[in-house]
Design a protein around this nucleic acid. Sequence first.
DNA 1: CTGTATCCGGATCGATACTG
DNA 2: CAGTATCGATCCGGATACAG
Lengths: 233, 233
Amino acid sequence: MNTTYGQYCPIAKAAELFAERWTPLIVRELILGSHRFSDLERGVPRIPRALLVRRLREMERAGIVERRQQGDSRHPAYFLTHVGQELGPIIMQLGVWGQRWYNAHTEPDELDPALLVWDMHRRIHRDRLPPHRVVVRFDFTGACHGSYWMLLEPADVTVCWVDPGYDADLSVTADSVTLHDVWMGRQSFASALADGRVELDGARPYIRGFPTWLALSTFAHVTPANTATAPRG
Amino acid sequence: MNTTYGQYCPIAKAAELFAERWTPLIVRELILGSHRFSDLERGVPRIPRALLVRRLREMERAGIVERRQQGDSRHPAYFLTHVGQELGPIIMQLGVWGQRWYNAHTEPDELDPALLVWDMHRRIHRDRLPPHRVVVRFDFTGACHGSYWMLLEPADVTVCWVDPGYDADLSVTADSVTLHDVWMGRQSFASALADGRVELDGARPYIRGFPTWLALSTFAHVTPANTATAPRG
DNA sequence: CTGTATCCGGATCGATACTG
DNA sequence: CAGTATCGATCCGGATACAG
């Protein structure tokens, strides 16, 4: 709904733009460093493509997003303008609120290993990686199983949804629920390794290194409050 | 749309609740001190009644709002729970952002003297009022004209949309655009008086007192930035 | 006063298929 | 890769009537 509220109140004016469906998630992706159209799609996998196009156009028109046609007919890229960047703290506070009150666990239909790996790849500590490429295979077990590959290099971390052909230097095996819990800070990676819920397999340096390369969600440090006071359908 | 985003991300979980249409404005009203159903309707005049009911129920279910049936079969009242109150800073930041970038002026169809008087009545400095009742009549001129009454007492400030029958102790005459500009901080009340855009009529103590009783919008102190960089359709 | 119930036209959303 | 085009399902807005 791009309809207005018809109020002079600045909260209403802001909500007309910011509180549109999907918009907070698109802004989140841009903040987290996705700029290509296809990357935005990966970060917001359930948005209809036409709607993503439309939201980007609306935000561009409102001065929140800038579309740059990369030099010599390359693919376009999207960036937050200064106006859009000022939404950053608001988005983050919203995430803290969500984590505190409404994220004590991940619903079964919210499990999304592909998205999880995509989120993780953006927060790898690249400065701690060895100077050569390391190929990591994630083997998710349980309700939502499948394999994904992450290619770690100090210059760039990429994700593959199909076997890239390289032999994996390290495999990470875990139930999909467990890895979501670790990512959201509900269980530490160390304890998940200790009790065998996460298994690492590969050469010793990689097994020892990987836990230091991985960073958790931005909100992992926010402790969920007692949800008994905030039930959710 | 009470549909979900299907993402484990806490920003998505929060947006599902907070970024629903009308919800930010309802939360704003609750923060500003409206608790009765009819008061919420006054503060969000364009929301269909059935939708207001529905949003309140949704928020209640989510633990954001608490509905209290006042003692001995009185009218019900709505309050923000602790969870809902934590949205306060987010709402306010959103308002600052809206004021900064998207509120350089009030659109003609956003002029709403009835809402303006309603907003003003909540921010009167009651502690500065004389100990007896003062009746103020607002006469709006221009595109959006009409008269409204405000009954000022230290214990309570009320608004009337029809002549309450009392003689007015003070009349405030101004173009509707001017008074919106003053409220939003785009022109000072003093300068509007000085250049005759606002006229006060009544006994001397009331004319001198009124400018000290009136408080502006919470966002009046936020200076709009240059909108040339943030055009808006 | 605080809702419920209904109806309808139009806007929006979600899903799918197609294209340069 | 980065969009368009299309279509049915749903939601919203606005109006109206009614009830405890």
